[in-house]
Amino acid sequence: MTCASAFILRREDLVPLLEELAETLEVVAPVQVEGEAAFATWRGEALALDDKNPLTSPMEFFLPQKEVLFRYVQYSGRYTFSEDPPRARLIFGMRPCDLRALKVIDGIFGADLPDIPYAGRRRSTIIVALNCTTPGEGCFCRSMGSGPGAEGGYDILLTDLGRGYLVEPGSSAGVYILRAHHRHFEEADPGDIKEKERLLALAGDEIVTRGPSLNPEKIREAIDGVDWEEAGRRCLACGGCSLVCPVCHCFSVLDQGVPDGERLRCRDTCILSGFSRMTGGANPRAALGERLRHWYLDKFVYIPEKTGLFGCVGCGRCTRVCLGEVDRWSLFKEAAE
C-alpha cells in the first residue's frame, strides 16, 4: 500500500474486512431489527447500510442511556469502589450528522473538566463514518452545516460509490487500520473523488428540495416568536425529543443497593418537571412551555455560545418521535414568516 489518501473497498470485501476487525474489537454496525436498521453489535448479519440513519443514534455508545459510574462495597464502615474499563469498539456506518453531534459533545463533556467515563469511551472507540448519499425524509443536516458529507472527526470515512466504497482515513488510527488490512483496498483515482463530490451535492440538493430548509439564524430569531404555552399544551411529556436527540446529554445519577451497590447514571430530559424541581417544590421552569423553550434556546443559543457549534445537527429524529405533534420545524417556519 502506498501513501495515497483515498482507496476503494470493493463491496464484496466489506464483510471480510469487518470479520477481521471483529477479531479484536467489538464491531457495532447498523443491522436489521424488526424491519428497520438499528446499531447493534455485528455478528455477521446482513448490514443495513442503505436504509436511512437508525432512529437511535450511535451516540448511545458514548453516552449510554444507563451506565454504572462505579460500584461501592462497604466493609466495616469504609467503602471500596470499582469502575469498569471502557470497551474497545469500532462503530461502523456512523453518519455525518451523528459525527457532528459527537463533536458538539466533545465541546461539553470533553472540555473544562473532561467527563472521565465519556473521555474513556471516546478514546477506545474507532469511528468508521459513512457519508450520506441516501438522506432520510426528515433530514435537514445541510441547513445545520453538518451533512450530508462528513468533515473530520472520523478515523475512516466511507462513501458508497456504487461499485464500491471510497475509503479515506482521517486519523492515524484510521491509517493504521488501512495498513493492517491493506489487501482489501486498492488506490482510488481522482475520478472517484469527483464522483463522491457529485453524489454528495446530489444528496444535498435532495435534502433542500424535499425537507425543511431552515437557517439556524432564523430559528434563533424565531424562538421568541413561538407561542410556547400553546406548544406546551400539546406536548405529552414523553421526553422522546431529548432521549432520541444525539446532542442532548443531560443525565441523572442515582444509587441502587445498600450497603453494597451501584451508582448509576441515566439519560434524563429537561422536558420533565422533576428535572429542575427542587425538593421544596420550587421549580425554575414550572410550565411545559417554558421547558420546551429552554430546550430550543439550549440548542440554538447556549450550546453555540459554549462550543461554537449548533446544538442541533439536523437529524430530524425529534420530529419523528414526537407524540404531541409538536412539529418543531413547522413551528419555526410559522414563527419565522
Binding site: 461539553i108 463533556f109 473544562d112 473538566l113 467527563d115 446529554h249 443531560c250 443525565f251 441523572s252 445519577v253 434524563d268 429537561c270 428535572f275 429542575s276 424541581r277 427542587m278 425554575p284 429552554h294 434556546l297 439550549d298 443559543v301 447556549y302 455560545e305
Partner: peptide, 19 residues
C-alpha cells in the same frame, strides 16, 4: 443561588439557569 444539581461539574444540565 440554589438549583437542582446532579453532577456539580457543568455536565448534567439540571442546574441551568438560562445560559
Amino acid at each position: 443561588l440554589e438549583r437542582h444539581m446532579k453532577c456539580g461539574v457543568g455536565k448534567c444540565e439540571h442546574c441551568t439557569m438560562g445560559r
